[in-house]
Design a protein around this nucleic acid. Structure first.
Lengths: 331, 331
DNA sequence: TTTTTGAGTGAAAACGTTTACATTAGCTGC
DNA sequence: GCAGCTAATGTAAACGTTTTCACTCAAAAA
């Protein structure tokens, strides 16, 4: 690969001048500039992003980190799409880290990202207390959190209103006449799971329905727990007439059980999932779901991050997007 | 961030010695080694992967590129998971590029990857003729192709036997008594789509069924085309009694249409999809599908790539994995 | 005793950029 | 005719590593 040196030689100038035309700063004679551009084209010269990154932290070297808990989860895939969209438009590359809810793995990835000298990071940390990530923020790395924040520290966050989303969903179920509405939660160490459960409880109470402990099952945000807990619910002496699932993977697990038992949706049991999926209409019956604007979350996060990179000292922003109840036929 | 210099100063040695203990090469006195390790720990020193990468192409700097056509597609997500798994286990980071079937975007990403001085690349190129990628291979970049090869050039490839997979699927449909078996193809510029169609045709012929042109629709591997083309099929004066869909996104589109029309699967129309999905059992009825071992494809590709990085001159390997027909209830 | 060996270490170049600083030369204004 | 300015360019240091080469010193060999 041709380097700046090669270009400089061919154009008969020094590398400093080449750098100047590449970055469009400093004065350079029109004729020289033309000669340099010609040489660049002829040599198919491409600047090394690595050298650039090594040399100066001050100038952006266009590499962002993305740290997500579970790439199996379609929600994060959609967030990733949004991020990738704005990264691409701003000439940033993405280094992708999927820690699969494993804190040790998360830690290693954070170290790698730091060591790669990324310009900024979009993360959905395993916990709000994440000391390592907090430290990186304090050390000045531009960070935007997504789906979950970072407690006690000023950082940009893009969230959705989980509690209201859940509330509206369960309220809708209650108003539709369901009386025994169950809930399978996500991993309760994640704030969003807690908030969704809170919304669930409040909606029950506000609709004069009892909160029944045996109808609340604590899952871990993964598909198998959806299967297991839904089975438990349906095996109850008095099974629920509707299930509100805490995330999309749980929903899929629950659906599998319901179909296997040959129960009719929504007649035997209704189901309403938190998290929409782009193929929710392909389910039978089409799934009623709380839609998070996942792609927009990603886009917003990307935009916030690039802003912060360019203006490190602006005050931090908490952006809360709204959910939408997609009423289809499963509830 | 602490640098080697800081460590060297604290341990009272030169950076050369620090480098030696870090990379475990060259002789170094046990006492000195201990002092250096202590300093490293105390300073929480982490080597800069950037500097490492800049310095020497010879030593691996542990960064791989991944270039995929469509991260929306669950198949690629699963492949990505497999790659990520082996990358993580080998201390490689992943820089992820999703070109969304857009050749211009692909080109830009390839440039970026090159400029990032990656150690190797796993790619599912837009076309088998991809000149830019071919050039990179020729220039010595370790590359493993996935899902599609690169014509006229020696390169490691991990593929599945598309033709046999499709053949077996359609053969199964035929043997089950379906007479008017339709096919919605994927993008025909992708070899796998062509091979699947070929398998479809041969299975029809071998089962004494006519190949009917109006039952073959050319899609573009995306969900909307699944919707549109399935609608066309079902609107035919003599609609098909079974549909073999060319990929998972098309399957989802077709399902949406079938459900909307309130047709029963498989009684009114059977459906068999190429590409399994991890939630195929959550569909109603559970989807019969040709399963590609996507995760394994990713894993194998990752392993091949790391092998090639370590041994650039070994002869190239073409690995063909088998598909499996997952018989569920939709056909 | 002198030479050879090898273990242990350091100095310095190199990777490809950016950038602070120096240099040159032509002009302006007096 | 000279100080001072500006446009245009070059020199060299710096970023944080790896790696070659050279050096020192003590022990082994002669």
């Amino acid at each position: 690969m041709a380097s700046m040196d090669d270009v400089a030689k061919r154009a008969g100038v020094s590398i400093a001048t080449v750098s100047r035309v590449l970055n469009n700063n400093g004065k350079v004679n029109e004729a020289t500039r033309a000669r340099i551009l010609k040489a660049i084209k002829e040599l198919k010269y491409q600047p090394s992003r690595v050298a650039k990154r090594l040399r100066s932290k001050s100038v952006s070297s266009n590499l962002l980190g993305v740290l997500i808990p579970d790439i199996q989860n379609p929600f994060y895939v959609e967030v990733l799409e949004g991020i990738e969209e704005v990264a691409y438009n701003n000439n940033y590359a993405l280094i992708m880290c999927n820690f699969g809810q494993d804190e040790k793995k998360e830690k290693l990835y954070l170290e790698i990202l730091q060591s790669e000298a990324i310009d900024g990071l979009i993360a959905a940390p395993a916990s709000e207390e994440d000391v390592q990530l907090k430290k990186m923020v304090k050390d000045g790395l531009p960070v935007v959190c997504v789906d979950r924040g970072l407690s006690g520290i000023d950082v940009d966050v893009v969230l959705i209103d989980n509690e209201t989303g859940a509330y509206n969903a369960v309220d809708f179920l209650a108003k539709s006449g369901y009386k025994r509405i169950a809930h399978i939660t996500g991993l309760l160490s994640i704030p969003s799971s807690v908030l969704r459960e809170k919304g669930y409880r409040n909606a029950l109470i506000d609709n004069g329905l009892p909160v029944i402990d045996e109808l609340i099952k604590n899952g871990d945000s993964k598909l198998p727990s959806g299967i297991k807990l839904c089975e438990e619910l349906l095996a109850l002496p008095e099974p629920p007439d509707a299930i509100f699932t805490g995330n999309n993977l749980i929903t899929l697990g629950a659906l599998e059980v319901i179909h296997k038992k040959n129960l009719r949706i929504p007649d035997d049991v209704a189901i309403l999932g938190f998290d929409d999926m782009f193929w929710a209409s392909s389910l039978n019956p089409p799934l009623t779901a709380v839609r998070q604007p996942a792609r927009e979350i990603g886009r917003r996060a990307g935009e916030l991050l690039i802003q912060r990179i360019n203006e490190p000292d602006r005050s931090s922003i908490q952006m809360i997007l709204n959910t939408e109840l997609m009423k289809r036929s499963s509830a």
